[in-house]
Design a protein around this nucleic acid. Sequence first.
DNA 1: TTAAACTTTCAGAAAAGTTTGAAAGTTCAG
DNA 2: CTGAACTTTCAAACTTTTCTGAAAGTTTAA
Lengths: 168, 168
Amino acid sequence: MKLDEAKKQFIQNWGVLGTQWGINRTMAQIHALLLVSPEALSADEIMQELQISRGNTNMNVRELMDWGIVEKVLKPGERKEFFFADKDIWNVAMRIIRERKRREVEPILEGMYQLKVIEGDPKDPEIKTFLEVVNDIQKFADQASRVVDNMVKMDEHWFTGTLLKIFK
Amino acid sequence: MKLDEAKKQFIQNWGVLGTQWGINRTMAQIHALLLVSPEALSADEIMQELQISRGNTNMNVRELMDWGIVEKVLKPGERKEFFFADKDIWNVAMRIIRERKRREVEPILEGMYQLKVIEGDPKDPEIKTFLEVVNDIQKFADQASRVVDNMVKMDEHWFTGTLLKIFK
DNA sequence: TTAAACTTTCAGAAAAGTTTGAAAGTTCAG
DNA sequence: CTGAACTTTCAAACTTTTCTGAAAGTTTAA
């Protein structure tokens, strides 16, 4: 297979995966394109390569920078801005996990605290089931949250070495 | 807060969370409704409660059963089918993680093996970067996959006890 | 200043995803 | 069998999300 073809396929696959996990297809594709580019690319190069508009390119590159997985690079003597993706996959994964937790999971779970104060007899099966489920979700989310927070602090080596051994 | 209001809010929140993670809003809402119902509900009750059509109800209930987190219950003397959600949150989470990995992540990663055989000089920066990124993603996904597989086999207690201690 | 080179915004258009509801299919008691 | 009670299917309508491109804004070199 030729490099160009392989790149195209990689970008397509990454786009599909993104879509299925609630991430905009273009954002995932731009990320994939930058991941496999040794050099930083300009907005024009991204537009060209993915056949998308300038506006779309701009919006999604900005979002990728918000997520902290792509950065703006200025080349001396050039007016244009160039974009470069962090190539350390462990780092990228940890950032994505942390951001999604912070943006999407935490607000919902916070809202859940309000649901724990409801009127009525806690022995009523309706109320009992409700309180148990809400509590269990919170407990689970809390534990998962703590594991994520600590994983983010660790480096890939620790993950590969220690954690994989624990899980046999 | 009244139970009914709390339920409504819980169902809404769950729907939003689902949407953000690429899960159909209605599917998440039906799941939420069943989670907080002590008894199994009929299609009619679900339609009524969420104000959705029969077809929509049917499709999404079926999908929830495919995921293994809702089951069909037949009540003696009743013609209707009733639906009941597994209330064990650990169990539910593990099933969701396992299914999403199997359905969405694994096919993409399998496709990635093909991308590793590309023509050209492996010292060319273009080719070098591409191969490194594809390899790193595979390595990472492979490790994560193994951790998930083993977590699925464990019970909640192990997670709460041992893993949380490891992560201080 | 000025104007060329570039980036950003956003209203409307297009695409993607979801829902409906009527019709077809199934099951089962009588 | 029959038909009532129920479930399933799917094309078309609708909703939501994403994308475009022209216009406005910004930066910089001269």
